[in-house]
């Protein structure tokens, strides 16, 4: 808002408010970390020390990694999110290119369908998709976790916008150079649209890593559960108040995205705001 820096009383006021709100925002994370290294006895002690009297972290994390199939959950997350992201890109990029650069009958209608798909929230589709999955025998499998998301209207929309900004001459030059239409998508357009593609991939991976709704419907076997569903199942199994291993598990589920976020803050923020704007 302002080029000059604030006078010092205002600066102090700014920091005192923001430090407090930032602390409140981070409190659940801090508390989760703190509990994940505390022993069972210490939870009940009154007073709130951040650091444990006795470091129980190793036991808790070992319990989280062995008692519950947590590594399996994380692996499932990587597998499912990776497959979804790749399949979405494989389907969306050619379609976005066709919508952006080719003349064909029905293009307008197809784009209208994409926009319609953009409006429909995923939860609305749960019931029919559950039925489709059930009839095709896809439930309780990796395919069942992946198939509803292979198409992303948002991905088509985003890439189409970006492809439209690429000059037609580049496409023409590529055709003259002998590149096929599919070749233009992958050799020319996709590399040029790299920022948009990375933004879309971040958006896709974050959404599906965090998704609980569909996995809850589609999967029963513990061995197939992605991280969000896994941690919930872990909690239900760990009845009682031995928070240590549970919190260690939660930390492990949250950590990959948070670390990635801290490494590439700007990219993540841009990508996730794009997603909200969809």
């Amino acid at each position: 808002m302002s080029v000059r820096s604030l006078p010092w009383p205002a600066a102090v006021a700014r920091h005192s408010v923001l430090i407090v709100t930032a602390a409140l925002m981070l409190l659940p994370f801090v508390w989760m970390l703190s509990l994940s290294v505390k022993g069972p006895g210490e939870m009940f002690r009154s007073g709130f020390a951040l650091l444990p009297a006795h470091f129980h972290g190793l036991d808790n994390y070992r319990a989280a990694l062995t008692a519950a199939p947590l590594p399996r959950f994380l692996l499932n997350g990587v597998l499912v999110c990776g497959s979804i992201a790749i399949l979405q890109l494989l389907l969306c990029a050619p379609c976005a290119y066709a919508l952006a650069k080719l003349q064909f009958k029905g293009r307008g209608a197809l784009f209208a369908l994409v926009l319609l798909g953009l409006i429909i929230p995923q939860q609305v589709l749960a019931l029919p998709l559950f039925f489709i999955g059930y009839r095709l025998g896809l439930l309780d499998s990796y395919v069942g976790l992946i198939f509803p998301f292979v198409i992303s209207p948002f991905g088509i929309f985003l890439l189409r916008q970006f492809f439209r900004g690429i000059p037609d001459d580049i496409v023409h030059a590529a055709r003259l150079d002998g590149v096929s239409e599919l070749g233009i998508v992958w050799r020319i357009m996709a590399p040029m649209a790299q920022p948009a593609i990375i933004a879309f991939l971040i958006f896709s991976v974050v959404s599906h890593w965090n998704d609980l709704f569909w996995p809850l419907i589609a999967v029963r076997s513990e061995s197939l559960m992605p991280p969000a569903l896994g941690i919930v199942t872990f909690r239900d199994a760990e009845a009682g108040t031995d928070y240590g291993p549970l919190m260690a598990g939660a930390v492990l589920v949250v950590a990959p995205l948070v670390l990635a976020f801290l490494l590439a803050q700007r990219r993540f923020i841009e990508s996730l705001t794009l997603g909200g704007v969809k």
Binding site: L26, W31, M32, L212, V232, V251, V253, L257
Partner: peptide
Amino acid sequence: AAHFLPFMATLAAMAVAWEAL
């Protein structure tokens, strides 16, 4: 970053942390 962090953290896991809080 501090204020944005909750938006992208896995809500299922964070709900477990909130329950403890």
